[in-house]
Amino acid sequence: MIEQLLNGLALGMVYALIAVGYSLVFGVLRLVNFSHGSVYAFGAHMALFFVGLQFGVIPAIVFSIILTGILDILIDKFSLAPLRKKKSKGIAALITTIGIAYIIQNLLMIFFGSQTKPFPAIFDYGYVTVLGISIKSTQLFILVVSLILLAILTYVVKFTKIGLSMRAVEQNQKAASLMGINVNSVIRFTFFLGGASAAIAGSLISGYYQVVYPNMGFLAGLKAFSAAVLGGIGVLYGSIVGGLVVGVSESYAAALLGGSYRDAVAFIILIIVLLFKPTGLFGKKDITKV
């Protein structure tokens, strides 16, 4: 049982990392970035690619983080920024991100093949005993790394200047730009953060399961989105709590109900949350003004 809990926590932290990407972008743009799942798969594949070039695992992940961040910036620059300029309706941006998810996922399939590929284990030293409980070192690694990263992200958003401008854009774009904030560059930075955290999540989860495949982003992205909605989309710590809840309940469902139902848990959580409290656990109520 405790093993399942740890499993779930490690998984949940990764979901939280992806969910943060949804949350950040939703915060500034009020847009669910459907391409996020495929960006996560892209990050994992880039890490695999650089590992294949004999860079060593850690530099490969760093390269992948940078590249994925840049990819996310490019997505914004070439597909979403023009829509913002034209003041298109939200649905147009939503469909655009679905299209981009499709493009990325299928290009990955063409260039890397659709089969599952092995990925080297990161930080695998067998089992570690902490306080009388033996933990897989990879799980511990995921937990620690994602905790640190989430702390850094929270710090960036709460205590730095760029974080301040992000929050300003979140509250009111027009007012923020009147105050001399370059809204577009803030949005681009947000996308970079989202992409980078997705790449880290992708590398961590591929190091944990030791497989990579182009469709990995679809389910993971949806589950992370459920996590983000559960915690209240747009709220950072909400994403972390949501991610942990989804991860833990998923691993318990896999243990109790069998593996075939594990993927359904996140959706059931999602639908229940949407029915009873669409704003999520910690979300603020959005008031529509006329």
Binding site: L31, V32, S226, L274
Partner: peptide, 24 residues
């Protein structure tokens, strides 16, 4: 009945989730 009280994006996600549940 339950989901159409939701607005655009949430609805899209809920229908997507429904589709996956049906497939499962």
């Amino acid at each position: 009945l339950p989901t159409l009280r939701l607005s655009g994006t949430y609805l899209a996600i809920a229908t997507l989730g429904f589709c996956e549940v049906v497939r499962m």
